[in-house]
Simulated scan of single mutants.
Amino acid sequence: MKIASTLALASLVASASLAQVGPYAGQQDRAIKALSERDIAELRQGQGMGLAKAAELNGYPGPAHVLEHAAALSLTPAQRSASEALMHGHKARARELGESVIEAERALDNAFASRRVDSALLQRLTSEIGLRQARLREEHLRAHLEQAALLEPQQVERYRQLRGYASPEQTSPKSSGPHRGHH
């Protein structure tokens, strides 16, 4: 009896190890396979999703975080008002563009789900997704570019400090950021 039990257990363990779970297991039930529910929510909310890192990490502040640190940055009333207007317009455009990315991904997903995808359709759908993703990224980067233009060099440096990108000893207003060399 012990031998039979041991063999049965060994067989179970062997079967379990052969039936490995793939990295996408569970994702087949998503409404749009390439996008998680979190991805969809962030696109619909106009979230940054890391799309503006090239600007953010090179000294071009984003409007959301500038407004978050308005007091520490000593924003003037005019700067605050302009930053709020920038943020409002940016969020509206980002939400609209995010929705267009979702719809393009849905079209690709539907083409595969319906088994009607071919090379020509695949090329058209993926090109459209790429174009829409590029427009969304451009929107996020443009918001940083426009925000940086609203700030003084010392505010940009203070922002970098507040965000943990620079320490007071490492930088000066003349040494880095979008206003490099301006006095």
Rank of each mutant, 00 (worst) to 15 (best):
Y165W: 14
A166M: 05
T76R: 11
E68F: 13
G130M: 02
Y159N: 01
A41Y: 04
Q170G: 12
S17Y: 05
R95L: 03
P178N: 07
G50T: 03
K53W: 03
S5K: 13
K33E: 13
L136R: 08
E139V: 09
V13D: 12
R180A: 12
L51F: 03
L86Y: 08
Q147S: 15
E105R: 12
S15N: 12
Y165D: 11
R106I: 02
R44A: 02
L57T: 04
N110W: 10
A25F: 08
V13H: 02
K33G: 07
Q147R: 05
E105H: 12
S119E: 13
D39C: 14
K174P: 09
L7I: 10
Y60V: 07
A34E: 05
P63W: 02
I102K: 08
A10R: 03
P23R: 10
H65A: 14
Q28Y: 10
E128T: 00
S172E: 09
S74Q: 13
N110G: 14
G46V: 09
L73Q: 12
M87I: 05
H144D: 07
A72R: 14
Q79Y: 08
A148F: 02
R124F: 02
R93F: 05
S11A: 14
R115K: 11
Q27T: 15
G164K: 02
R38H: 15
L57V: 07
E152V: 13
R124T: 11
S127T: 03
